[in-house]
Design a protein around this nucleic acid. Sequence first.
DNA 1: GTTCTGCTATACGGAAATAGATGAACTCGG
DNA 2: CCGAGTTCATCTATTTCCGTATAGCAGAAC
Lengths: 296, 296
Amino acid sequence: MNSEPDWDLYRSFAAVLREGSLSGAARSLGLTQPSVARHVDALEAAIGTTLFLRTQRGLSPTDAALRLKPHVEALVATSAALLRAAADHAGQVRGTVRISASEVVGVEHLPPILAELRRRHPALGIELVLSNSIDDLLGRQADIAIRMVEPVQQALVTRKVGAVEVGLHARRDYLDRCGVPETMEALAGYDLIGFDAETPAIRAMAGRYPMLRRRLFALCADSDLAQLAAIRAGFGIGFCQVQVARRSPELVRVLEHDCAIELGLWIVMHEDLRASASCRAAFDALAAGLGAIARG
Amino acid sequence: MNSEPDWDLYRSFAAVLREGSLSGAARSLGLTQPSVARHVDALEAAIGTTLFLRTQRGLSPTDAALRLKPHVEALVATSAALLRAAADHAGQVRGTVRISASEVVGVEHLPPILAELRRRHPALGIELVLSNSIDDLLGRQADIAIRMVEPVQQALVTRKVGAVEVGLHARRDYLDRCGVPETMEALAGYDLIGFDAETPAIRAMAGRYPMLRRRLFALCADSDLAQLAAIRAGFGIGFCQVQVARRSPELVRVLEHDCAIELGLWIVMHEDLRASASCRAAFDALAAGLGAIARG
DNA sequence: GTTCTGCTATACGGAAATAGATGAACTCGG
DNA sequence: CCGAGTTCATCTATTTCCGTATAGCAGAAC
């Protein structure tokens, strides 16, 4: 435990964590199994900790290895971001841009925007990371993120492109069958579709509409796509963006005047990427496309 | 430009960027100059871009290299964070914790807190990063940060420990000489000490007190320490935390009822570090110490 | 002008890491 | 019960990489 380990050891360590075995890691890295084994040994010697328990069925990480896991994953993500940036030659729009968005935005809003972006820049590859829970810019897992909360960090380039309105919706035949709720309190008698996890947006919503307690929900799903699908399937009443619901003629908004949540829509990018022509092009395309959606 | 470059090449690249020469980089890495030269050549070949212009007086980075600079700096910071985490053995409070804070917090509030923390955990090293401008957690430049704005990211562990009040202060003899301002508008006739750059906190302040336009400031300084020093030197009237000013008997608050800014005080940590005994100990010590300060 | 110090580029021998092959242990499925 | 398919560990030949030494060049000090 003296000098800094070679960074290559980290890469092998990450591969072993990811693949679960020396052989698998070697395959994924294009190395041979003994090489990866020596890397792991060297890293363990360097930091003075056992990282894996060797079994005949693979290597199982120790607690110490699990503690280090987020860090090497950050290294992996950062080196990937570096390679993306390196592919961005001299102001040309080419290479690959990674975009992070919530599932429903990625599925409902982005496809036409990205198609248009691709048509204008045929050499630009696009990677889409859909997740509702992860802060993708923190670990450089994405170059550009679409957010529903205002970013406060200075190291980020942000642009507010408008707002989306979230309201309660249900399928028409469900309302025909069960009736249309007239008050928020009456919702307790319906099949409500709601969230499971805690995110800032959900906490804010729960604060505004205390009658929507979690145990009232007939179906809890973290995935907003699953919620949307449940609404479309006629399961019951749930939240969804009015811009999305408007496209489905069978969906009807309920309690429009009692329950309306306006969520801002921000596009966020690392300040470092401002010089990248590819990221700027994607950023501007997202701003234009999402702005048009927000305006209706 | 086929397969991924060795990560060691990134390390050498970062060192050359930092040191400005192959020889300097080699010294700082404990390698020799030809090795680093080979690394740079290999990296240039791998990404297909010239990274440095070779001169007799060192290597000067090209635009491409400057674009990649933030990324390799993130790699450096992350690998350092990984090493810190690796030194954290089995729940013991030892190793090193990096704490980021604003200058005035680091100078005025933290020293006794850190001294107490160190007394209780003699094996724990502390690194203090004082900066007013950088988002240190983004690039893992710090393990724990003290913030004046509420963090919104889910991947962070945050605790609000109270609030500090910021008000206008001046030295007693300055007020004796120039008189005590009775209204906010009257401030225009005094020697005002203010900010130069734009931070969220400053923007909020400027919004609340529009009469404090930037061109009114007789002395602009980004460093809040410099502002505090100017106030203490009797330069004029400026902003400073009341908890700080209270310790200097020669400082007097002015316009107490007309100008009072309450800033929340949050301690923020990466979620990944929750398992680290060292970071937890530091986090708790900061929460206790700053909480006591916020309460007066 | 000379010398000294900094830098990069190149050539070459040796050490170190790598690939490849082999063996042993274990799991799974018929 | 046994064979196919994993896995990791060990050994050796080879390739790769690193360090030493040297040359060449530019600027600063004397």
